[in-house]
Amino acid sequence: MSEELRRRYELLLLAYPRWYRRERGTELLTTLLDDAAEGQRRPRRADALDLIAGGLLTRLRPPRGSAARLLTAVCALYAALAGMALAVLAGPYPGPPAAQDALAAATTAFGRAPQGAPGLAVDCDLACPDVKGAHEMVVFDHSEDRTDTVVVWADPAVADLAQAQARLAAAGWSADPVVGEVSGLRSFDAVRDGLSLSVSLPPPTESDARAVLVVSKRPTASVVTAALAGALAGAAVGWLAVVWALQRRRRHGPALRLASALAGAPFALVATVTLGYALLWAVTPVLTGAPVNAVAVPLALLTLLPAVTVAAAGSAVLCCALLALPGRGAAAALGRRLA
């Protein structure tokens, strides 16, 4: 047996996770050396590729069982959402539109200037928002960040969608056709330069109905690229983490298994509900034919209730910390072989 061959095989076995090498490393190496030809000094190329593939698969494959697979998918998708949100938030998003730009667009669309002082506080004429600081007509969707949209409300009596479209078009906006939803809400999107706006008008039957104009910056190509890269990175990290956790869990006793399940349950719940909403947000516009304004959906999902997102992250970290405690040993991971 050549010492060189053994060293090279040992190097290849690094493709496998450490726990697997501890359990199976010597055995796998023995089999590899048994299979080696007399005087062979280097691993065969096919064997090397097979070992690398086997090692990666061991790292990436969730344990058997539909619950484990579902959990893996949910966590990976949630991590993809989080990665996308982080990339959008920290990345090259062009920032919230200026309140003045939003007001200018609203003035064009509704055909009349707001009365009172322009800016964040204007008289309740064009808009009568039902929020604290009642005279604001421009609100931010949550604590300020670069992806914020600015919302302008208007009295529906002054808002006519066809006229708004015509006025915007005359001012150089390129407006999409008006689409109606089942609920009776009608809306259209328009873009000009770096701005995107969505104007919607509820059915007149609704009490306290208001025309709403949402203004946002249009995401640039680099924003979209960063978002996709963030989603991919998030999915990869989430997948690896959950497979690690599930594999690690099998090497613990019943007490730690239960504790880790309890610790991780809030995260699993939040991730499932969030994905449900994400799916709804993705599917609803397709079903109803409603336009989707270019706002950062994952970010909105994760920042809708920031405390819940933070709690979910804490739950995931606690679960992983419990599982990272020293395990019971090698045997359990090889299934029922000792049974």
């Binding site: 199976r24 796998l28 089999t31 590899l32 299979d35 096919a46 064997d47 097979d50 070992l51 690398i52 593939a53 086997g54 090692g55 698969l57 061991t58 090889l334 299934g335």
Partner: peptide, 10 residues
């Protein structure tokens, strides 16, 4: 090959 074999055995 050993990688395939052990994945199957697991």
């Amino acid at each position: 090959r050993p990688g395939t074999l052990y994945a199957a055995l697991d």
